[in-house]
Simulated scan of single mutants.
Amino acid sequence: MRQGLERHLLRRWQAAGPPPFYLRLLSLLYRLATKRRWSRPAERPPCPVIVVGNITAGGSGKTPVVAAVARLLCEQGQTPAIISRGYGGRVSSEPRAVTSVSDPAEVGDEPVLLARRAGCPVWVCADRRAALHAGLRGGADVIVADDGLQHPNLPRSFEICVIDGQRGFGNGHLLPAGPLRQPLERLDSVDATLIKRTGSTDCSADLPGMHVPVEPGAPYRLGTGEGTEGTEIDRQATFDAVCAIGNPDSFFALLEALCYRFRRHPFPDHHVFSGREFSGLAGPLLVTEKDAVKLERLTGLPECWVLPIEAQLPETLIGQLLSHVREFRPS
């Protein structure tokens, strides 16, 4: 049901011509309900707070950018912490620390992945302000917020908006008539705009911002960990490509660019997998790292390979971020 509705809306959002009247009417109600969250908060945080978010629904590639920003800060001698709401987990009003072995059903799949990839503490909480202060109490001197452009209660000092170069802004309408969570004018108040590019996918020439390539690493067997020696994927096999991210087509486009042969199996974002969903698949499986943190808890799966990806931050953005952190002064 949910998957069918998502596919229907995604087709509508990318289609030419005006959306149906009933969707435009619902968009008006959405505008009235969310307009107070459209402006960038003026409150100054107690430390640099870098928000990585988007203004569209359906995924844009925030997670690899968040991980890349956190690793950059670590390399420069900072002590960052990542905060997240923990979508897909059992969201709590109390901050909760996430580790590489945390249960995605409890804290969300993306926070577990970030705990493994970013090299810094990760905190989840429904109250992002509480998560911020938990990070500070844990010793952080910079906070990186996974999502947050639509959350006025979170003070921030630097905003990054990530745009999916494949989908762009769709038809340019607000939810649910279009994919926009905020109007395009919100981009005028962010500090940097990134256009995610996956594989050989062409990006629309009229999208504003810096291109951020998302590059694949070497595939590894599920449960063995990246960089394990003695394991090599059979590039001549036909894979069952399983994907439950905001934009599954971006994963499939990457596999096509890498010349894999595969069958597509898209699922809704943050989908909770069960073993029976794989009983009819011949395998081998090829999955994203975000999905792997959930699949590794299942038994009886076919042979499964994980394709890691990393975002390559533009030099201009790196300079902006490092200058901001150095020059930030609390109020």
Rank of each mutant, 00 (worst) to 15 (best):
D206W: 00
L222G: 07
A218V: 14
P208S: 06
E229H: 11
A205K: 10
A192S: 14
P213C: 06
G199I: 08
A218C: 10
R221M: 07
G227Y: 09
D206V: 03
V214W: 01
L222W: 00
V214C: 13
C203M: 09
E229N: 09
S200N: 15
G199T: 04
G227A: 08
L207A: 03
E215W: 04
A192E: 13
G230Y: 00
A218W: 01
T224V: 11
D191P: 01
Y220R: 11
G199E: 04
L222D: 04
T201H: 02
V190Y: 05
D191W: 02
E226I: 09
G225F: 01
G223H: 03
L207T: 00
C203Q: 01
I195G: 05
A205T: 12
S204K: 13
V190P: 07
G217E: 11
D202W: 11
G209Y: 00
L207C: 07
A218P: 03
V214Y: 03
E226V: 08
G199R: 07
L222P: 06
T231G: 00
V190D: 08
D191K: 06
T224E: 13
G209H: 05
G217K: 05
L222M: 06
A218E: 15
P213D: 15
D202P: 13
C203D: 08
H211G: 12
E232P: 01
G199F: 02
G223V: 05
P208L: 09
P219F: 01
V212R: 02
D234P: 02
D191S: 13
C203P: 00
G223E: 09
R197C: 04
T231S: 11
P213T: 07
G230T: 08
S200R: 15
D234M: 02
E215A: 12
G223K: 05
H211F: 12
K196S: 14
D202F: 10
A218I: 12
L207K: 07
I233K: 07
G230S: 02
Y220L: 08
I195T: 04
I195E: 05
T193Y: 06
G223L: 04
V190W: 04
T224M: 11
S204M: 11
T224L: 13
E226A: 15
V214H: 04
T224P: 05
T228M: 12
M210W: 15
V190R: 11
E215F: 02
V212C: 14
K196I: 09
T198S: 13
G209A: 08
G230V: 02
R221V: 12
Y220T: 10
G227Q: 08
P213A: 13
D234Q: 05
T231I: 11
K196V: 13
P208W: 09
